[in-house]
Simulated assay, not measured.
Amino acid sequence: MTDAQARVEALLPSVPTWLVPATGPESRFRNRAKMVVAGTTDAPTLGILDDAGRGVDLVRCGLYPASVTDALEPLRAFVTRAALVPYDVPARRGELKHVHVTTNDAGELMVRFVLRSTESLPRIRKHLPHLLEAVPSIRVVSANLLPQHAALLEGDVEVPLTPAERLPVRQGAVTLLARPQGFLQTDTDVAGQLYTQVAAWVAGLEDDDEVLRGGGALRLWDLYCGAGGFALHVAAGPRPEREVVGVETSEQAVAAARDAARAAGLVGARFVHADATAWAREQPDDAAPDAVVVNPPRRGLGERLCGWLDAAPPRTRHLLYSSCNPASLARDLEALPGWEPVRGRLFAMFPQTTHVEVLVQLRRR
């Protein structure tokens, strides 16, 4: 048993059965690099900041595939060519805060420049053709505006700089359409295994559940659906009569999920831009699902959504909980006394760290 598996099992003693952990490569696995820009216009660094706020260069970091690392030197040169002034965190001056690079399995790229203001936009637009010539794998470019001095990776405003605004990223059996402000699991290989596992467990529910086995059409909600990974995999299953609804607060993510469903011809998948907790609590009992998939942020589901799940209508008999924080998952399971864990599986989504993704299947007691 790995140390990570032992820690998770100790945190979740109510889970009776654990499948073999899902793993992937331990290097070159991250599909997204979020680089802090520091230094000077003539000598910029792309990486992280040290304790004094100085840049530490990571352009050859082994976490990223070659499609990303090969683009970082041209991006560094672009900072100089376009006269972009790196943001100096201690001094609180400068313009360019971060460069984000996302890749897919084909090596195509989405690039974002996170800026303090629009001051640099004319120069970025002017020199962008040179960058696209230097890195022909770039498909999507945008600028994000983050005016405040804060420990954030992006702001609310996104300015498209290329006609294409979506990067197709295949994870598992479905091609997701990543947008600049949308959520995307960073380990494509392990994410595919996670989505495939949920789809397999849902198919098993249809075989084992007396109501669904009798010919009832599965109705499933995917709360905190992001770009739709779980919902799209379930909708793409062998039973086209399934009714799948994904709910997400990010407009960019919902738009990407809708586009992906349309491109794949998944007419049974619907996506809603809303707060997951508020939306679930507002639905009438006769619209309740047979199964719910939840993939909340690190803080977990919270008291109100746990309360709704524990008192959900009788039709709702199955719950699949995917978590990037086993500690908050453990708290939520304690807040769900009406649900019984069936089995779990660890997904090594974040190699070389202590973080893991955990999937637990539950049924109503």
Rank of each mutant, 00 (worst) to 15 (best):
M1D: 13
Q5T: 11
R7D: 01
P16W: 05
P16V: 03
L19Y: 00
T23V: 05
P25L: 08
A33S: 15
T41D: 03
I48S: 06
I48R: 08
D51C: 04
G53P: 01
V56Q: 12
L58F: 14
C61E: 00
C61N: 01
G62N: 07
L63R: 15
E73R: 15
E73N: 11
A82S: 13
A82W: 10
V85L: 13
P86V: 09
Y87M: 02
D88L: 11
K97M: 14
V99P: 01
V99R: 02
N104S: 02
D105Q: 14
G107C: 07
R112Y: 03
S117T: 15
S120V: 03
P122H: 13
I124E: 00
R125C: 11
L131T: 10
L131K: 04
L132D: 07
A134M: 03
P136L: 03
V140A: 12
S142P: 05
A143W: 05
N144W: 02
L145D: 06
L146N: 07
P147V: 09
L152Q: 15
L153T: 03
G155C: 10
D156I: 06
P160S: 09
T162Q: 04
E165V: 15
L176A: 07
P180H: 09
Q181E: 07
Q181A: 15
Q181I: 02
G182F: 10
L184W: 00
Q185P: 06
T188E: 04
D189Y: 09
V190F: 04
A191T: 11
G192P: 00
T196K: 06
V198T: 13
A203Q: 12
D208Q: 01
G214I: 11
G216T: 13
D222M: 05
L223D: 00
G229W: 00
G229L: 01
F230I: 14
A231W: 08
R239Y: 10
E241C: 06
R242I: 07
V245Y: 12
V245C: 15
G246T: 02
E251A: 15
A256S: 15
A256F: 11
R262T: 10
A264T: 08
L266N: 13
A269C: 04
A269P: 01
F271P: 03
H273A: 13
D275W: 07
A287L: 14
V292Y: 10
V292L: 12
P297K: 03
G302S: 12
L305V: 02
C306L: 09
G307C: 04
D310Q: 10
A311F: 03
A335G: 02
W339C: 09
E340K: 14
V342N: 08
V342W: 06
F347Q: 08
A348Q: 12
F350S: 10
F350V: 10
Q352D: 08
L359K: 08
R364I: 03
R365S: 13
